[in-house]
Nucleic acid binder design. Structure first.
Lengths: 122, 122
DNA sequence: TATGTGTACTATCTGTGATAGTACGGTTAT
DNA sequence: ATAACCGTACTATCACAGATAGTACACATA
């Protein structure tokens, strides 16, 4: 598991963890029912406080990205597919907002089509 | 001038002000050399501290969005066009990042083309 | 039984944003 | 001149969120 945090980032550590782990799970880099590092182990690896990991894990459980079993650990949710679908919806909405603002700023439709083409080149 | 701030927003007030005013200037709703509300007046209107306005104005001046004349006030920069160009570049970069992530999440090229079409419909 | 796990507390530190108050010099209209 | 604005620059203080530190308890498992 490659999980890192950026202390200089304005975004809180616990939010960085939430987004990073959710992304890994949604994109399939973490398999359903896969065992996540324990709160204490991950805290030691990242040199941050266990409470911060706990906060992130609790939120990830609330989002159905993972589930916790007392005494055993945290695991990737088997319903991760539903999370992935919701994730796509949210991303599309966010991109739509960006595009609307781009339009008002004077960015042309052609600029954006070119951009999409380039990103999906290979 | 229609400037508002959202106290519930996680983003600091001074940053909301910076972005809002820069957007108004870049999109032409504020004309070059137009007189902005004074620090004290705007603070009174928005019911926030004058220091917070001052912080935003200082940053906007650093970005060449406005210029200040001691004793007279703050005015929209005549070089606002250069700011607008830089703004467009940054927006394109931001959208490119969103698109890259969208691609890895499984959003198709067709989805995005449709989205662009819809936003630029009228 | 020992070890590792999630979970739940309380207390405290820290940095940032925001506020409060004061002060000084430049500009402008009366 | 002078009053009423303006930008600017301080210092002090408050408020809040994020993060840390430490402890404790119940459960699982080798």
């Amino acid at each position: 598991m490659i999980i890192t945090v950026d202390m200089r980032d304005r975004k809180p550590i616990y939010e960085q963890l939430i987004e990073k782990i959710r992304t890994l799970a949604v994109q399939g880099y973490l398999k359903p029912d896969e065992h996540l590092p324990s709160v204490r182990v991950l805290a030691a690896e990242l040199a941050i406080n266990p409470n911060t990991i706990q906060k992130a894990y609790a939120e990830l459980e609330r989002q159905n990205v993972i589930y916790a079993v007392p005494g055993r650990g945290n695991f990737v949710s088997p319903d991760i597919g539903a999370v992935a679908r919701k994730e796509r919806e949210k991303q599309i909405e966010a991109i739509e907002e960006s595009l609307k603002k781009a339009k008002t700023t004077g960015i042309t439709k052609e600029d954006l089509i070119t951009l999409v083409d380039r990103v999906y080149m290979d």
